[in-house]
């Protein structure tokens, strides 16, 4: 695969992630906007009727704004971690942290397709030397493949385990439980781009398709 094609796919991946996050942030801003507007409505009503504001309504509105600020902070934190995933070609990462970030970035995308994506508790602190950006990109392509074949109401589960050879390295699994999974979608996984991403991850990595998911082994 040409370098240029892979670079375009990397840019496309960045675009999809930032578009999804910006939509989420817009929603939070919209809620803050409406809640502030509601507070203003209450104030105007109180002024016109010359009655005091009801403290409980004010407290509820302030609590709603605070909730959205905390939610937005979480989303922006994840976006920041994603942006920094491209800082270095290789670094030591905790795989559990990577999939936690991955699920945070993609849960809404999965939900839009009627699927639920969750991380199952696995081995503690599995650290590998990898390129976090390329790894996230590869996982995203695996997710897009899964979303194309599973029907609404499907469950996607991700796990992290220590590597198979004496605990060195680690392995990531994505499995789906889909009552209406399609056999033929015309989409291939791993395709040429996925294999190229795999080849560019540091060390000798392995990606194996299984009937209900895939396994990624990292050295």
């Amino acid at each position: 695969m040409e370098q240029r094609v892979l670079e375009m796919e990397n840019v496309r991946f960045c675009g999809v992630v930032t578009a999804a996050v910006s939509h989420e942030i817009k929603n939070m801003l919209a809620i803050i906007n409406e809640t502030a507007g509601l507070l203003d409505d209450f104030t105007r009503q109180a002024e016109m009727a010359k009655v005091p504001l009801e403290p409980e309504r004010v407290h509820d509105s302030v609590a709603a704004i605070n909730r959205q600020v905390r939610r937005a902070d979480g989303v922006v934190r994840h976006l920041n971690r994603f942006a920094h995933s491209a800082d270095r070609e290789a670094e030591t990462v905790d795989l559990a942290e990577i999939i936690e970030l991955f699920v945070a970035l993609t849960a809404r995308r999965a939900a839009a397709c009627g699927a639920d994506i969750q991380v199952e508790p696995g081995a503690a602190a599995v650290k590998v030397e990898t390129n976090p950006f390329l790894l996230l990109h590869l996982l995203w392509r695996g997710l897009e493949f899964a979303l194309a074949i599973i029907g609404a109401g499907a469950r996607l589960r991700m796990t992290v385990e220590a590597g198979p050879d004496g605990g060195r390295g680690g392995q990531l699994t994505m499995r789906w439980h889909a009552p209406a999974a399609a056999d033929e979608t015309g989409i291939e996984f791993p395709g040429a781009c996925d294999r190229e991403l795999l080849a560019r991850l540091p060390g000798k990595c392995l990606l194996r398709r299984q009937h209900d998911g895939f396994l990624l082994v990292l050295p």
């Binding site: 929603n27 809620i31 409406e34 809640t35 507007g37 509601l38 409505d41 009503q45 709603a64 909730r67």
Partner: peptide, 16 residues
């Protein structure tokens, strides 16, 4: 699907 958004918007429209 942002419940807090539509419920608040509905309340503001009702006030109007």
């Amino acid at each position: 699907d942002e419940e807090e958004l539509v419920s608040t918007l509905a309340e503001r429209l009702t006030l109007r």
